[in-house]
Design a protein around this nucleic acid. Structure first.
Length: 501
RNA sequence: GCCGGUAUCGUCUAGGGGUCAGGACACGUGGUUCUCAGCCACGGGACCGGGGUUCGAAUCCCCGUACCGGUACCA
């Protein structure tokens, strides 16, 4: 079995395409097949090498590796269509010589008018076939005169082309709604429907798994296979990925490309796992599974036929799951860009990374994606008693709890560092004794004073974080205030405000 | 317009002539002796519509409807 993913490098890798790539990959890996990556860059206007690089990087990031293709090589190359134009030309000439294709001299404006007229008269807007019957001599003469010509494939009249689609079952089309497709454009580059067929055949692709948007191209392509006497591959057209409004997934729904999801801090294993779940189910028992296990269970026949609505909430759930499973050091390194964006990190050394890894359980366990980590960790890097007390809610509550805060500041000035949960709890116990307060009326003021926020991580994890942070000998990381320093600052600020009012 | 495709909770799905139509995400309520998140428990929520076939239809057939895709010298 040989499958392929054949993106055109005209932008970022869209999640819908990533899902198509994933299905190909799952099938190949599950069945021991070969996965080929081919670049369809025949549209010279829109294709860029940057896009190609980005797509390749996104696929690698997702964990989808290929056995043959661009940046990898293989026995069926080259794998970039722009490097295969001689192959397409040769095959087009073959068709021409057999009369299965012909040169078309119709100017674009003419084609445009034909289409408009057909639409107005309620006919299918297919090519009218004006150049179909020119003799070969006429055509040659016009070409020698320098007239630009495209090459069109001659589609036979009134035939039913049927194929058995693995996900959709039997699909059929009648050829009389299909106009003669351009095979080679007048600029010499091949058109999509021609290049795919030549490449899939020559690359010995056995299963073509692609988006549903290609389903109506399939009869044209089948005709081409037939014209060359090639055996057609098995086709599977997977449904498209839509936005929550059932329209095309677009920018206004948020992220749409793999690169954007990565930038927001989704883990590759999470995105891949979620995408596999969109239109397919690995079985009743479990849906959170690693890629190799998904590959083991994957069956093309089980892929759903209806379009999938991209559900960002479910992705978030999957991502939270993998965030909890991830290695702390790996997560710590993934934090870096997000923390740098806040200015809390420059170029962290190993000790700084070590500290971040220490903080991972608290920081990553309660977020949907890494993008949200700074908000969870703001209390560490960006504490300010003044700013906290500028907030009405916090000030009112802190004023009311002045006795607790004052005892807290006093207590912390004499106790040792609260570097673990037990030390913190012991301190809370002493405070309880001294103030007579307990529960919420004790803990919440402590939270306010020490974190400057009214909600956040559990205090018995947050406080050890700040205490370790304050004693950190590391570079490339912003200074973190310790608990005692915070309590003192908060208490003083509170005093200042209560006397001045 | 024409051609093709699709239709089970809000979403992803399981199932499929007789089931209490199952699960997951999301949602609601309660619990978890500080909060948010998490976690736990409980709860509400679906077979697009109309005809037919049948003792019986969500399941099979037909017709609608809605939605998606295509209708290019884009891919």
């Amino acid at each position: 079995m040989r499958v392929r993913f054949a993106p055109s490098p005209t932008g970022q890798l869209h999640v819908g395409n990533a899902r198509t790539a994933l299905f190909n990959w799952l099938l190949a890996r599950g069945l021991g097949g070969t996965f080929v990556l081919r670049i369809e860059d025949t549209d010279v206007e829109r294709s860029t090498t940057e896009s190609e690089r980005a797509i390749v990087e996104d696929l690698r990031w997702l964990g989808l590796d290929w056995d043959e293709g661009v940046e990898k090589g293989g026995s069926h190359g080259p794998y970039r269509q722009s490097e295969r134009t001689h192959i397409y030309r040769a095959h087009a000439v073959e068709l021409l010589s057999r009369g299965q294709a012909y040169q078309c001299f119709c100017p674009p404006e003419q084609l445009e008018m034909d289409k408009y007229a057909a639409l107005r008269e309620g006919r299918p807007p297919k090519y009218v076939g004006r150049c179909r019957q020119f003799s070969r001599e006429d055509a040659r003469a016009r070409i020698e005169r320098g007239e630009p010509a495209a090459i069109r494939f001659r589609v036979p009249d009134d035939r039913t082309i049927a194929f058995d689609d693995v996900v959709r079952g039997e699909v059929s089309f009648n050829t009389d709604v299909i106009g003669d497709p351009v095979v080679i454009r007048s600029n010499g580059t091949p058109a999509y429907n021609f290049a795919v067929v030549i490449d899939d055949a020559l690359m010995e692709i056995t299963h073509v798994i692609r988006g549903e948007d290609h389903i109506s191209n399939t009869p044209r392509q089948l005709l081409l296979y037939e014209a060359f006497g090639w055996r057609a591959p098995t086709f599977a057209h997977v449904s498209l990925v839509l936005g929550p409004d059932h329209g095309v997934l677009s920018k206004r729904h948020g992220a749409t490309s793999v690169a954007e999801f990565r930038a927001r801090g989704y883990l590759p294993e999470a995105l891949a796992n979620y995408l596999a779940l969109l239109g397919w189910s690995p079985g009743e028992d479990q849906e959170l599974l690693p890629l190799d296990e998904l590959a083991r269970r994957f069956r093309l026949e089980d892929v759903g036929r209806s379009a999938g609505i991209f559900d960002i909430e479910k992705l978030a759930w999957v991502n939270r799951h993998y965030l909890k499973l991830a290695n702390p050091e790996r997560l710590a390194r993934l934090f870096v860009p997000h923390l740098q964006r806040e200015g809390w990190l420059s170029d962290p050394d190993e000790a700084a990374i070590g500290f971040l890894a220490f903080v991972v359980p608290g920081a990553a366990a309660s977020v949907d994606r890494l993008e949200q980590v700074p908000a969870r960790l703001r209390f560490l890097f960006d504490y300010s008693a003044q700013r906290a007390l500028d907030a009405d809610g916090i000030r009112v509550e802190a004023m009311a709890a002045r006795p607790v805060i004052s005892v807290l500041a006093e207590e912390l000035s004499v106790t040792g560092p609260l570097t673990d949960r037990e030390a913190f709890r012991a301190m809370v116990a002493r405070l309880r004794e001294r103030t007579g307060q307990k529960g919420k009326s004790l803990l919440h003021p402590i939270r306010l004073a020490l974190t400057g926020e009214s909600e956040g991580l559990e205090l018995d994890v947050a406080v050890p974080y700040m205490e370790h942070g304050a004693r950190l000998g590391a570079s490339g990381i912003r200074r973190i205030m310790g608990a005692a320093e915070r309590a003192k600052a908060f208490h003083e600020e509170l005093q200042r405000r209560s006397t001045s009012v």
